[in-house]
């Protein structure tokens, strides 16, 4: 009982990390997905319901992806394929976040990254297009679910982090935080067209967000390379009883 209480308390950490990433990524999110809530809010009937359903659909997909990423992380770790998998994934996540931040600031990302993003977007676009035609509120939820799959670099970075954490509940919590963190700007975009109307404000916001994401990325990178302790130390200690010593991440093995 005591252990479960400790576990649920430690679930706040990944949630807060996800929330911070989501809040920081809002200007980026507005640019990438802002058009969808505006489109969803165009119908005068049950506008609020449709917007809420869109956000809920997106959050649901994030949570699903978080669980999936953490599961794959645990499979890699259990299989012992990569003993340093956690560190590697953390490093990748940190590097991805840093790259995203540089892209937000205005640096040109390598063409291969943009190519991969475009290639992944194509099938999702194919599924999203018919959903845009649907006028029912349920379509807004479906659209949110599909939009959640768009290859967003911030999402990808956090998913790598979830994989590094290799715990499904942790992954679910982190991505739920991310979904909640990105919700305000999408709701505002739907309700007022905010940001879409004030491009100057959006640009400033984007720069501020870039700095936050860069800091998050560098911290994650430092943790992956062992320069900083694992932020999930407390969580690992709490669930340590269910792991054998060899299954524990390297940071918690001593």
């Amino acid at each position: 009982m005591l252990q479960r209480a400790r576990e649920s308390r430690t679930m706040y950490t990944p949630f807060l990390v996800g929330l911070a990433a989501g809040l920081a990524a809002q200007p980026h999110c507005l640019g990438m997905c802002g058009g969808f809530p505006v489109y969803v809010a165009q119908s005068p009937r049950r506008r609020a319901v449709r917007q809420a359903l869109f956000i809920a659909g997106k959050l649901f997909t994030y949570v699903f992806l978080g669980g999936l990423a953490a599961f794959f992380g645990s499979v890699v770790l259990r299989a012992g394929v990569l003993p340093e998998a956690r560190r590697l994934l953390s490093t990748l996540a940190g590097a991805a976040m840093a790259l995203v931040a540089l892209g937000m600031i205005g640096f040109r990302l390598p063409p291969v990254l943009r190519g991969v993003g475009a290639a992944l977007s194509e099938p999702i676009r194919a599924v999203a297009t018919p959903l845009l035609k649907g006028g029912e509120p349920v379509s807004a939820f479906g659209l949110g679910m599909v939009v959640g799959f768009f290859p967003c670099p911030v999402t990808a970075a956090l998913l790598l982090q979830c994989a590094a954490w290799h715990s499904v509940p942790t992954g679910l919590a982190a991505m739920a935080g991310m979904g909640v963190g990105t919700a305000p700007v999408l709701l505002a975009a739907g309700a007022f067209g905010a940001g879409l109307r004030w491009p100057r404000l959006r640009q400033v916001g984007l720069k501020v967000a870039a700095v936050v994401v860069l800091l998050l990325g560098l911290t994650t990178l430092a943790r992956g390379s062992g320069l900083l302790p694992c932020c999930m130390h407390a969580n690992h200690a709490a669930v340590g009883a269910s792991h054998s010593a060899s299954q524990m991440p390297s940071c918690c093995q001593q």
């Binding site: 997909t61 699903f64 479906g142 679910m145």
Partner: peptide, 24 residues
Amino acid sequence: LARLGVGAFLAMNVMMVSLVLYTV
């Protein structure tokens, strides 16, 4: 649309519960 959405939604829920059962 509703059929597809509901089907995918339920399948994703089932998947998430399964992932918890697989790892915990």
